[in-house]
Design a binder for these strands. Structure first.
Lengths: 193, 193
DNA sequence: CTAGGGTGTTACCGGTCTGTAACTTTTAGA
DNA sequence: TCTAAAAGTTACAGACCGGTAACACCCTAG
């Protein structure tokens, strides 16, 4: 019988991938290390040989998720080289696809909700990575020739963040269903100024 | 020495109030029933005489929070009787005040993030209460004479939801700082249509 | 073939969690 | 004042948690 996870990669990679998936689906405090290692087809000792604690594993998972998100941005540039406005529309499109494909929202935002301890190692990583994403979106808006780039970027950010959390409360038929329409008309109105 | 909680109310009320506060600050899975009862100046047995389980206590807390929110809406009507547009602006103002006063966001949204079990009793209550709030905001927008009332209400909802979760990730200096400006210009643009 | 690092296995530690039993004390109402 | 309900106290069950120790195994590089 084959594992749910990639057939025969290194234990560390399997643990990381499995943990990402399980944290995403069930939350961080909702998953124990035993469950992760079992699903990854390995054991607890091996986990602790590669990660010094569960908290450290969480941090590593968040970095991996951010890296995945970063690759999506490269895709925008590859598909619409130089055309920043087209890339902005691609961002909206991609965001909407992610909303449809999955209803558990953003791992970093969810982690921020769950990990309330102010000195949790994940908190600074979350802030760091979220700020980097914000910078990217601001730059994209600015390079697309939009005047109030920061304001548009922040508004789009809040809309997406809101849509992702709203889905978890009221489902896909709630306010988040209108995300694309909201985002597009917002972009249009900023371009008209 | 006086307790941190209301001097001498009934144990059930003290438990409910304390639980609301602690769940809000530290999350649901981050607080045990022992900690709640101790902070409420009582004991675990008394808690389980009034609530059949922790899950049931969570549900009751969410209902209490929603009732509190409902009282704020009554305040809008009392302060601007009949003037629905003024009430809508009051809603924006109040939302912004809540954002400044507290950075732990919406209890119901946070609970939805934390409680991933699809059959958790809190989930249907969250959906129920969030849908009721949505109805209220839609009605307010419609009665304020706005054409696409549903779309405005949903957009404002997502903005606020996003602002509340964004604060938990990147703090008050992030995108959520522009909430009032976003909401007001949104209302203005919908009124102009 | 052999040495050694990566991995698997089992058992365990101390702590915390929700929830309950049995009993005593306090409180409030007639 | 007497009584009955509400609340406090202590102890415990059973499960799960993160994390570690000790040891056996396998697989590959030399």
């Amino acid at each position: 019988m084959s594992d749910g996870v990639a057939e025969r990669s290194r234990p560390r990679d399997r643990i990381l991938e499995t943990a990402q998936d399980m944290f995403h689906k069930h939350g961080i405090k909702g998953v124990g290390v035993d469950a992760i290692t079992e699903a990854a087809g390995t054991n607890k000792m091996t986990l602790y040989r590669h990660f010094e604690s569960k908290d450290e594993l969480v941090v590593e998972c968040l970095r991996a998720t951010a890296a995945k998100a970063s690759r999506i941005w490269d895709e925008f540039e590859a598909r619409h080289p130089g055309d920043k406005l087209a890339q902005l529309h691609a961002w909206v499109q991609k965001a909407s696809e992610l909303l449809s494909a999955d209803s558990r929202g953003c791992d970093m935002a969810n982690a921020a909700v769950e990990l309330t301890e102010t000195d949790h190692p994940a908190r600074r990583v979350i802030k760091e990575l979220k700020e980097a994403q914000r910078e990217k979106l601001v730059a994209l808006c600015r390079d697309a020739g939009i005047g109030q780039a920061e304001l548009l970027a922040d508004t789009l950010s809040l809309l997406l963040e809101g849509a992702r959390v709203s889905m978890q409360s009221v489902g896909a038929e709630g306010p988040s269903a209108q995300f694309v329409r909201m985002a597009e008309s917002l972009i249009a109105s900023f371009r008209a100024r």
